[in-house]
């Protein structure tokens, strides 16, 4: 069934739902009707963000970020301006210019698609998987290099992490989640195997 926005249920859930079903875990679906029409993503945007999310947080013993719908969350978050993503960039470089909205803010997803295509000398999504990882790793390394200026990738990557670790899978299977700890232990032994809590709200805010 297709709704008035042109999106159907299969589009919304996408391939990620199959992974979720395979793991027997719930999927955090995005409600696209809340997204303004001009920011509603197309299939190519969603496929790219799903892939990029999965490259950042891949499937290991637990599903990856793309598997659980982090890509869709990023697109929703960008449309609404989470993590100050609707604030106009501090410095306008030539690569940003084609992707600026009238209000001066950046269309991050469009920029990312163009940037990855440019770096690969062709369509990023058509490249072999190892090549995609290589291209994204290079972008990531540049964006986080010491002394690097503002880079839209930092915002996108941050939202991918939010999109993953605030899902039930990321928050309670990859990490631990305890709504009611019931006590406070001020000093416990930690080992390299100790798993962090996504429900450590102070750490989430200030960590």
């Amino acid at each position: 069934m297709t709704d008035a926005t042109g999106w159907n249920r299969r589009d919304v859930l996408g391939a990620a739902s199959l992974v979720a079903l395979a793991f027997g875990l719930p999927l955090a679906a995005v409600e696209w009707s809340a997204v303004p029409a001009e920011d509603r993503p197309g299939p190519a945007d969603r496929a790219l963000l799903r892939e990029v999310s999965q490259l950042v947080i891949p499937r290991t013993a637990t599903p990856g970020a793309g598997d659980v719908g982090a890509g869709d969350f990023v697109l929703l978050a960008l449309a609404h301006g989470l993590d100050a993503s609707r604030r106009p960039p501090g410095a306008i470089t030539p690569d940003l210019l084609p992707h600026l909205r009238p209000d001066g803010s950046l269309r991050h997803a469009a920029w990312l698609a163009a940037e990855l295509d440019r770096r690969g000398g062709g369509r990023f999504m058509a490249a072999a998987p190892p090549r995609r990882a290589e291209l994204l790793a290079a972008l990531d390394a540049e964006a986080f290099a010491e002394g690097a200026g503002d880079n839209p990738w930092r915002t996108i990557k941050g939202l991918i992490l939010t999109g993953y670790y605030t899902t039930e899978i990321g928050g309670s299977r990859e990490l631990r989640y305890e709504l009611v700890p019931g006590r406070y232990d001020p000093d416990l032994p930690a080992t390299p195997q100790t798993v962090a809590f996504s429900s450590d709200w102070t750490a989430v805010d200030f960590g």
């Binding site: 964006a143 930092r154 990557k157 962090a196 989430v204 805010d205």
Partner: peptide
């Protein structure tokens, strides 16, 4: 915790 990853390189 995981939010520190927003400031770090790596994928």
């Amino acid at each position: 915790t995981w939010t520190a990853g927003k400031r770090e390189a790596g994928i």
